[in-house]
Design a protein around this nucleic acid. Sequence first.
RNA 1: GCGCCUCUAGCUCAACGGCAGAGCAACGGACUCUUAAUCCGCAGGUUGUGGGUUCGAAUCCCACGAGGCGCACCA
Length: 533
Amino acid sequence: MPPLRRGAGGRDRGRHGRALRARGAVRGEDRARRPLAHLARPPARLRAHHRRGGAGRVTTIPYRFEQTASAAEVVERWSGLVAGEESGDEVSVAGRVMLSRPQGKLAFSQLRDSSGAVQLFAADGVTRDFDAFRKLHLGDWIGASGEVVRTRRGELSVKVSDWVLLAEARHGFGDKWRGVTDVETRFRQREVDLWANPGSRDALLLRSRLVRRTRERLWDLGFVEVETPILHPIPGGAHARPFVTHFRALDMDVYLRIAPELYLKRLVIGGLEKVFEIGRLFRNEGLSPRHNPEFTSLELYQAYADYRDIMALVEELVSGLALDVLGTTSITYQGRPLDLAPPWRRATMAELVSEATGHDVSVHTPRETLEKWARDADVELEPAWGPGKLMLELYEKTAEGDLWDPIFVYDYPKDVSPLARAHREDPLLAERFEAVVAGRELANAFSELIDPDEQLARFEAQAAALEAGDEEAMRVDTDYVRALEHGLPPTGGLGIGIDRLAMLFADASHIREVISFPMMRPEPPERPEPPAA
RNA sequence: GCGCCUCUAGCUCAACGGCAGAGCAACGGACUCUUAAUCCGCAGGUUGUGGGUUCGAAUCCCACGAGGCGCACCA
């Protein structure tokens, strides 16, 4: 049956475009009338093949399909066939048609499933409804059964005897050779991106393996995986602006968590000595190649451990994950080699800043001197900054970006580390470190603050800062202080950005490459809403 | 938020002040071993939106929108 002509009956895609204008209708009116105008109409081409008339039974698309082999299994298991040989073995495969080469009374197409791709070979007289088969669109899903053969030209194929349409693709999947590069399309319609660009799928699969192996490794180390609240009455555990929402039953505002830290430490107080959580955090801050408003973190806490124990754990975990997921610790990130093998370099922040500036910098350096050096380094000073903040700014301005190979930067100023325990040897420092890889913070860890009195004092200082306008400052969490009053043993804590780690392993320059559906600005409507008639 | 850059057919891209084009996809046809098949044919556009300059604008200017990169903030 010949396909219906464009415009016939007004049922095809031409309806909201050319066909209408050809009849003199106004395109804009039509589009405004139907806000879903970008959706495709059911195409006519396969109607004869899979649609039946009559109420209640409009399609022959089956409800299930029995695969007996994946594409990769077919290619692997029958790799020994020689050109022109027929195996005598029947298989059923399913997937999406990615290439189609009808040639007279033969047709070749490539079927891709999650395992890989295999060629389908169809022939008039062999393949049921051959005429419809050769009209399949790129992107259509089908299930196909037939004998595994190798064609005369040497391509392993399933010689299709029977097949069935599983879903039709009403839209294209981009240029068959170059895929889709338009960022709007790639991330607003990620399903298109995932089919059109194999690298996109690879990045998400790599992330999945990474998360899975992270869990397994931590389980093996005796950590207990837990889930703590995402709705927090008081946002805490980090410096960040929270998202606010409202809980109707209790008529109270609640916050999407900016960190699970306080709850996890309360679990340690409760006797879960080694806990971890992998989960989503929400920070009401900007979008950037390295920031998504919701992102995934790993946080873990280990009783009886200090920050040096955690350093050892981090380098072991990250290098081990590289081996698990990539098979090597020698990786390339954005064209530059990088080795994750332990031991990682360790340097105090004061050492790094001194190295970078040429001055002998420490948190004990007089404030005026620090201010001068900071100005020399083009740091934009703020009057409220103390020596610790000045040193941190100086570090971030002069030293951090130049770090490439993995390094533990430790002994942070205490006044910029409100949840870390004071240094055992220097009261102006905190026992805190960050792991920096490829010039970026990958992990943040400390010997946890365990003293309830000091915790309360620091909360109060934060609350004062909040009052003074610092929207990222913390609030006083009396529940948490009361928990500390029950006794938190010496504990080492760690946070790792899973997205950042996935970026590193996937060699991704943008965080959205490793997020299935990254945050996007809402798509603007094609036209303003028409005025009410 | 600031600076620079980008936006052309469903997709990937040309045309850079003088008739808006190609490849792929789609549509019609030929073809019994293709590999991004090939060949013939047919369609497809308010050149992101609005305004300006000009005899003439996809092209130059302005504004707006969306996006990218960098800076700032942050993990």
